[in-house]
Lab assay of single mutants.
Amino acid sequence: MAAAAAAGAGPEMVRGQVFDVGPRYTNLSYIGEGAYGMVCSAYDNVNKVRVAIKKISPFEHQTYCQRTLREIKILLRFRHENIIGINDIIRAPTIEQMKDVYIVQDLMETDLYKLLKTQHLSNDHICYFLYQILRGLKYIHSANVLHRDLKPSNLLLNTTCDLKICDFGLARVADPDHDHTGFLTEYVATRWYRAPEIMLNSKGYTKSIDIWSVGCILAEMLSNRPIFPGKHYLDQLNHILGILGSPSQEDLNCIINLKARNYLLSLPHKNKVPWNRLFPNADSKALDLLDKMLTFNPHKRIEVEQALAHPYLEQYYDPSDEPIAEAPFKFDMELDDLPKEKLKELIFEETARFQPGYRS
C-alpha cells in the first residue's frame, strides 16, 4: 500500500510507478496490472468513496492506442447498470505532455475469474450472474457493438453480487458484411471463450460470437473449470467437437473457408456428449439454455433477447427493466489503419471533457 500523499506533496508512487492523480484522489492501494497499465484503488475526496484507477501508458504502440481509444469512446457513450462506466479521466493539459491516461471507475471487490478459483456457486448465484451478463449484453448488442472478449476476468463483482462487464478494448461495431482481413492475426481474445466460426472463417462476425462466450462462462460457473481449455488453435476446435459432436452437413455448409471445411470433413465422426453427463448436478433449465448458447452453427445460436426470456431466468426476466441503447454506435473511421500519432490526438480530444474549465 502506498503511503497517503500529504496535501501538495506531488504524485504518489505505487510499486515504483508514478500515479499522478492528486489532489482529488489519494490513499492509493495496488490492485493489479494488465498488459499496459496498473490498477489501484484510491480515495475520492470529492465523492467520499474509494474508486478504481487504471493507469494506461499506450502511446508507444499502435495496438494499445487503438484499444484505449475504443474503450474510452464506447464506455463514455454507454450507460447501463451492468456495464462499468467511466467516472473521470485524468491526463496532462497538453498533448505533448500526455504520456499516461488515468481512467477512474467504480471500485468492484472482485471478478468472476477470482471468485470461481475459490468458491463453488449455488444455482441461485449462477442464475443471477447469468441474468446480469445477458442484461448488459442486450444493451451492448442493441448499440450494434460486439464485445468480443467476454470471459470471467472481464466480469466485475461486488459483495452485493452486482455484476458489471468491463474491458471493451477489443470491441467492434457489428459488421457481418465487412471482410476484416487479418482478423485472426489481430484477434487476441482469450482462445477458450472463442466461437468456432472465428477459427473457421475470417469473413465478418456477428453478435452470436458473444453468446458463445457467455455459454462458455455459464459452463464454467457450473463446474469451476473452463469447458474448452484448448492449448492452441486446432486443439481448441477438437475440444469443442469432442463435446458438441461432429457438425451436420448443414452446419458445414455455413463454413465459407474450404480449407477449414475440408479439415472438419477429414475428422472421424464424434457423438455429442449429453450435458447432464458433463454437469450431473446442474439445473435442467440451465443445461437447456447452455445447449442453445453453445450451438456450433452461429445462425442457430440463441440471441440475447431470447436467452433473457428463457425459463431458467424467469424469476428475473423483465423486458421493461432491460434497457437498450438510445442509438446504434458508430465509429467515424476504422481505427485499425491509423498511425499511433493520430490515435493519440483522438484520445486527447475524447478525454477533453474531463479537463478543468472544459467548454463543449
Rank of each mutant, 00 (worst) to 15 (best):
D162Q: 02
I347K: 11
A5V: 12
L76R: 00
V101R: 04
S246Q: 00
T110S: 15
F296T: 09
M333K: 15
K344Q: 00
L107A: 04
L294V: 07
A3G: 03
I74V: 10
D20S: 08
G16T: 08
L244S: 08
P152M: 05
L112E: 09
N154W: 06
D44Y: 14
K54A: 02
N257M: 08
I243K: 06
D318G: 00
Q236K: 13
T295R: 05
N297E: 05
H141V: 11
A282G: 02
I255G: 04
G204A: 12
K99T: 13
E96L: 12
Y128V: 05
R194P: 04
E250S: 03
I198Q: 02
M108D: 08
F129Q: 08
N238L: 10
I84R: 15
D321K: 00
K330S: 08
T159H: 07
C65T: 08
Y358N: 11
K203F: 07
S360M: 08
P247F: 01
K54E: 09
L308N: 01
W192Q: 11
D318T: 01
H80K: 02
I89M: 11
A3V: 13
E305R: 06
L170E: 04
D179A: 14
A143Q: 12
G37Q: 00
I72T: 05
N297M: 06
K300I: 08
G136E: 10
L163R: 08
R277S: 15
R67H: 12
I56V: 15
A307I: 00
Q306M: 10
F129S: 00
D291L: 06
G8N: 08
P328E: 03
I211E: 10
S208F: 05
Y263P: 05
A52F: 07
C254F: 13
F19L: 15
I256P: 02
S248G: 02
L258H: 08
D336P: 03
D337L: 10
C40Q: 15
N238D: 00
I211Y: 12
L163H: 03
E197D: 15
V101N: 08
D336H: 01
P311H: 15
A35H: 04
V104N: 03
I84P: 01
I256Y: 08
A325N: 05
N201K: 15
P196S: 12
I256A: 12
S208H: 03
P328I: 01
P311I: 09
R148P: 08
P339S: 13
R148I: 11
D106M: 00
D318C: 01
L116W: 03
N281F: 11
K340D: 02
G10D: 04
F228M: 02
E96F: 01
T185L: 03
L115E: 03
L134N: 01
L116C: 00
Y233E: 10
K342M: 07
L156F: 04
P93W: 03
A9F: 01
P298R: 09
S248E: 07
Y113K: 13
T190H: 03
Y263S: 04
